[in-house]
Simulated scan of single mutants.
Amino acid sequence: MLKPIWKYAVPVLACLLIQPALTACSESTNVDVNLHGVNHTVDTFSYSVKNPALKDQPGAGGELIDPYGAGGTTCCATLPKTWRPGIKLQVNATHWVDRGPENGLLEVKETHLVEVPQYPDGKPGELWVLRTPDGKVAIVSSDFQPDHPNWPGKIKGWPVPSLKYRQERWKILLHHELGGIDDALVLLDELEKDPEKSAREAWQLAEQYDRESIKGFSGPNDSKYIIYLKSRYEKVLEYSRDKVKELMEVRP
């Protein structure tokens, strides 16, 4: 005796009806993976990624990555579940070239069609977009970070700043801390010469930007407030001097 076919036809029919909207009845051949950016250059870098095989899909990514830095985790790049030769992704990259204080930054936009390297363990991992030391764009599919022994990328480890870059950053930090010393000395000198005027000016600034610092004082003429200001300026001076000492010990 034949079994009634309607018992089996109903779920099949339901699946066919929802097929156009969902893809529940057949497993997708693609998978979405997280995106990361790594910048091995001195130029600030931004990127977005698009699978050109998916015409209606918008680009993903778009974060700014500092020189010799790495971005966070963004979503999402679409990769085939099964690797095959010739899979390519479109990487829209932007970097900014510093032309000096007088000329500012030059924005450079580029479009790269980059071939996806073979999945090292047979399945797509998270997608890493790298701006390589020579300014080119490469991609790596890996669930491991660049400093992991199993990282499959050609460039091993996180970005290492150049000596020139480290020297420039060091000079900026040193200049900042030396400025802190100068400012603290000026404030202490003014407070000693004319404590009432200095306290009045400090109070007015605190009312605008730091009201917490003046709680507990009756006003700018409060003798305790003047003592507080002197202690505060001395701490700033001590802090900046300590930072300068530290910087001199690690000069690149």
Rank of each mutant, 00 (worst) to 15 (best):
W158A: 05
W83F: 07
P67R: 09
L89W: 05
G122T: 04
K154C: 03
K123H: 11
I139A: 00
E102H: 05
G86N: 15
A70M: 15
L105R: 12
T82Y: 05
L113S: 09
V108N: 07
R131W: 00
R166N: 11
G72M: 11
V97W: 04
I139G: 01
P146W: 15
Q167T: 13
N103E: 10
K109T: 08
A60G: 05
G59K: 14
A53F: 03
P149Y: 09
V49A: 07
V49N: 00
A77Y: 04
A77W: 06
G153R: 07
D56P: 14
Q167W: 11
T74Q: 13
W83H: 11
G62E: 09
G72I: 07
T78M: 03
K88T: 14
T44A: 15
G71H: 03
F45N: 00
P85N: 10
K50P: 11
L54F: 01
R131I: 03
D98R: 13
G122R: 03
P85Q: 08
I65W: 06
L89F: 00
T74P: 06
G71E: 02
P149F: 04
E110G: 04
R84D: 12
K55D: 09
V129E: 02
W128R: 01
I155Q: 11
P67K: 00
E126C: 13
Q167F: 02
G135S: 05
E102W: 07
P159L: 13
Q145R: 15
L113D: 08
F45M: 10
P124D: 07
G72C: 06
K164Q: 15
S142W: 03
D43E: 06
E168P: 09
E102D: 12
V160I: 13
G125V: 08
P80K: 07
P85A: 05
S141G: 05
L89N: 02
E168W: 08
T111D: 03
P85W: 06
T44E: 00
I65P: 06
D66F: 15
A138T: 14
L105C: 09
E107H: 02
L130D: 01
L89H: 02
L106Q: 15
Y47R: 07
H95W: 10
K81Q: 09
G71M: 03
K136I: 04
G71A: 06
A70I: 14
V91C: 08
E126Y: 15
L127A: 06
P117L: 12
L127R: 13
R166Q: 14
G135N: 01
P124F: 05
G61S: 12
V114H: 00
D134L: 11
L106W: 06
P124V: 05
F144D: 07
G62D: 05
G86T: 15
V137P: 01
C76V: 12
V42D: 03
L163R: 13
P117R: 12
G100R: 12
G100T: 13
P58G: 08
K136Y: 00
G72E: 04
W96K: 03
P117N: 08
W128E: 00
S46W: 01
T82D: 01
R166K: 11
Y165I: 11
V108K: 05
W151S: 15
Q118V: 08
S162I: 08
P52H: 06
D98F: 09
D66N: 13
Q57P: 04
A70S: 14
L106I: 04
T78H: 14
T82E: 12
K154Y: 12
F144W: 14
G62K: 11
G135W: 01
N103F: 12
L163C: 00
K156A: 10
